[in-house]
């Protein structure tokens, strides 16, 4: 499927430099955070609870005022990018009134308001965009439901659809996978890959360390500041993760004595969540417990080796 309604094309660039955030109560949530991303990438944002992931998103949106540093999108300030409908954002927890009298269709249509005329009357293109977004998150059948009458995972997908309908090219997703079943997670990942192909930047925060190497090209390790950033393979080392999580992670050591090992390998599993990240002798092993995933992993492997060449 093509992303026909995504606005301008051309190169996209997100730059965060020296970002510091101090909350009103004096709590320093971020300091000196810097990284940059260019179009056509999925970036995983990883760090323990309270490490400032949501704060980073909010300051990228201009919702909290940084005490130091700047965020620029395509070289300009965030506010202009918002006006130009470049940025779409799905917060960690939607704090809306679930009894509000709007249907799924209405909510997703609201994603188009920025692009509509003064009276916000929906044109055909808007309706098509809404339909396509709803189909992509497989909620088309639910379009007339009142939003309170959906399950938690379906609600999350509605807001993802709204972000898609908006057609932003910088897409910020704060923990889109919590409370979402495996099938939906896979569907979302496929979706994100398509968006990447069309040149979007997607920043995803997650606690599923295991899935990051699977679908993220780049990763940012965060704990009050950026500890490491770059291609996932180079960021996701045992050393970096230990530094970022500082003993928060569960460690399981399976030595020869504890498991029957036929090939003499020792396996170490680190996890912050239900999906463990598995380390072998030389870096992380991708987690292949589910069928149908291997192709995704192989594809990424192939791309990596091509890039190396």
């Amino acid at each position: 499927m093509t992303t026909s309604f995504h606005h301008s094309t051309g190169d996209l660039r997100l730059e965060v430099s020296g970002l510091g955030v101090v909350y009103a109560n004096g709590h320093r949530a971020l300091s000196g955070a810097s990284f940059s991303l260019t179009g056509g990438t999925i970036c995983g944002l990883v760090g323990p609870n309270g490490s400032g992931k949501s704060t980073l998103f909010k300051s990228m949106m201009g919702f909290v005022r940084p005490s130091a540093g700047v965020v620029t999108i395509n070289g300009g300030p965030v506010r202009e990018a918002l006006k130009a409908q470049v940025v779409a954002y799905v917060p960690q927890a939607e704090e809306v009134d679930w009894d509000f009298p709007v249907s799924v269709w209405d909510v997703v249509l609201m994603g188009r308001y920025g692009a509509m005329n003064f009276l916000r009357r929906a044109r055909l293109s808007d309706r098509l965009a809404v339909e396509e977004s709803l189909r992509r998150v497989s909620l088309w059948e639910f379009r007339d439901r009142q939003i309170g009458e959906l399950s938690g995972g379906q609600k999350k997908r509605v807001f993802l659809a709204r972000a898609l309908a908006q057609g932003g090219r910088l897409i910020l997703l704060d923990e889109p996978f919590t409370g979402v079943d495996v099938q939906t997670e896979e569907a979302i990942i496929v979706l994100l890959r398509e968006l990447r192909t069309s040149g979007c930047i997607i920043v995803v925060s997650t606690h599923n360390l295991g899935s990051v190497p699977e679908f993220c090209d780049q990763a940012v390790l965060l704990n009050k500041t950026v500890l490491a950033c770059g291609p996932t393979a180079s960021v996701f080392t045992e050393q970096n993760l230990t530094a970022a999580f500082g003993g928060v992670l569960r460690h399981f050591h399976f030595e020869r004595s504890t498991i029957q090992s036929h090939d003499g390998r020792s396996v170490k599993i680190m996890t912050d969540d239900e999906r463990p990240l598995v380390f072998g002798k030389d870096g992380h092993l991708e987690y292949k417990d589910r069928e149908g995933r291997e192709s995704l992993i192989d594809e990424r492997r192939r791309r990596e080796t091509e890039a190396e060449r």
């Binding site: 779409a88 954002y89 809306v96 009276l119």
Partner: peptide
């Protein structure tokens, strides 16, 4: 003229800001 904007503001002010 503006009921849709006001509706979005009442429903989800964060989203209204995201849309600029």
């Amino acid at each position: 003229c503006k009921w849709r904007d006001l509706m979005l503001f009442c429903f989800d002010a964060t989203q209204a800001r995201t849309l600029g």
